[in-house]
């Protein structure tokens, strides 16, 4: 009998130990990666709103610096697209990009020329097209040659302040969503919950890493790269404020941190990922090309493509090694998405 109990314990322990370690992994990610990221976003967005109240002049250094810090905070959490960011389209309200049809400048020009009174209230402003909200809209008002001076000056000022306040409010709501429930939701899966098991939570975190890498490679780099015959430098993300390359770097830093958490306890995998991230990051730093203007020149273009390939190499490790290690690998058709 005693022997039997011992065998049973042996059989059961590894499974529950794995469950515990998964739960600890999730807790680590929520506490050290997710919550601090959204706290920074809420704090910096609040500071941006305050700076806009003090000076709404697009050329104001204080305003532009506050804008830059808040936008940095967003990019660093922009891969965490689940839960509170998706309620009421909050993430899109902060970041409507890529804007393949140029809706943002059109919507802003419309508001400015009509002096639409909706801009006088932050709560009302949540009703406008999401293309006219968030960091990318604000970038046009602060940095676009035409839109930074368009419209009546007083109205332009109100619009800058309202968009900033709207960003602050949205960021606050996301943080509250995490603090008031979603962190617990991720830490305590249950049959009736959003997540039924730790594995489902891990799958979501894994997916945000994979999707974040894909977005940075294919969109942040892919859109300005265009094709060899038709490079698209004007499609670079946030090029007006000179932030395109910075966004790739910030996202790689954030994704590297998430990857390190997910690979915790697997030394070989961690080392491999760390090296791959470092390689891509140093290749990017060596470019010294803030808005990827080099896409139009064959030689500098090649170097930007190399950064993209570096991210592709990370994606391969994540898909082929991390996925199976976490037990969340997707099948041939499950991965397809068609």
């Amino acid at each position: 009998m005693r022997y039997f109990a011992y065998v049973l314990a042996l059989l059961v322990t590894p499974l529950s130990a794995q469950a515990d370690s998964h739960n600890a992994l999730i807790e680590g990610i929520v506490e050290a990666h997710i919550l601090p990221g959204f706290e920074a976003l809420a704090t910096q967005s609040q500071a941006l709103s305050k700076a806009a109240e003090e000076s709404c002049d697009p050329a104001s250094d204080t305003l532009r610096q506050a804008y830059g810090r808040a936008f940095d905070a967003w990019v660093s959490v922009s891969h965490l697209r689940f839960g509170p960011t998706e309620v009421n389209d909050r993430a899109f309200a902060l970041a409507f990009w890529p804007d393949s049809r140029g809706v943002t400048p059109r919507a802003l020009a419309g508001l400015l020329s009509e002096q639409d009174p909706i801009a006088s209230s932050v709560t009302d402003y949540a009703q406008v097209s999401i293309a006219a909200r968030g960091f990318y809209a604000l970038e046009f008002l602060l940095y676009d040659d035409r839109l930074m001076t368009a419209g009546e000056a007083g109205y332009h000022c109100t619009l800058v302040q309202t968009i900033s306040a709207d960003i602050a409010l949205t960021s606050k709501h996301i943080l509250e969503g995490w603090q008031s429930g979603y962190a617990v939701t991720m830490l305590t899966p249950s049959p009736d919950g959003v997540y039924q098991t730790d594995k489902e939570v891990l799958q979501t975190l894994f997916k945000s890493l994979a999707t974040g890498l894909e977005f940075t490679a294919d969109t942040r780099l892919g859109r300005p790269l265009g094709s060899f015959d038709r490079p698209r430098p004007t499609r670079a993300e946030a090029r007006r404020s000179g932030r395109s390359s910075r966004h790739v770097m910030l996202s790689l830093e954030a994704l590297s941190s998430l990857a390190a958490h997910l690979a915790e306890g697997d030394k070989a995998l961690s080392g491999k990922l760390e090296a791959a991230f470092e390689r891509a990051q140093s290749q990017l730093a060596d470019l010294n090309d803030p808005v990827f203007a080099g896409v139009s020149n064959p030689q500098s273009r090649l170097k930007i493509e190399i950064v993209q390939q570096g991210i592709a190499a990370i994606r391969t490790i994540v898909r082929d090694e991390m996925g199976p290690a976490l037990g969340v690998a997707a099948g041939f058709n499950a991965l397809d998405g068609d």
Binding site: S100, I130, A131, E214, A217, D218, G222, R223, L225
Partner: peptide, 16 residues
């Protein structure tokens, strides 16, 4: 869903 071959299979217009 709008996609463009330059940006792989990235979905460009989920919000709209």
């Amino acid at each position: 869903i709008e996609t463009h071959p330059d940006s792989g299979r990235t979905k460009l217009n989920i919000a709209t």
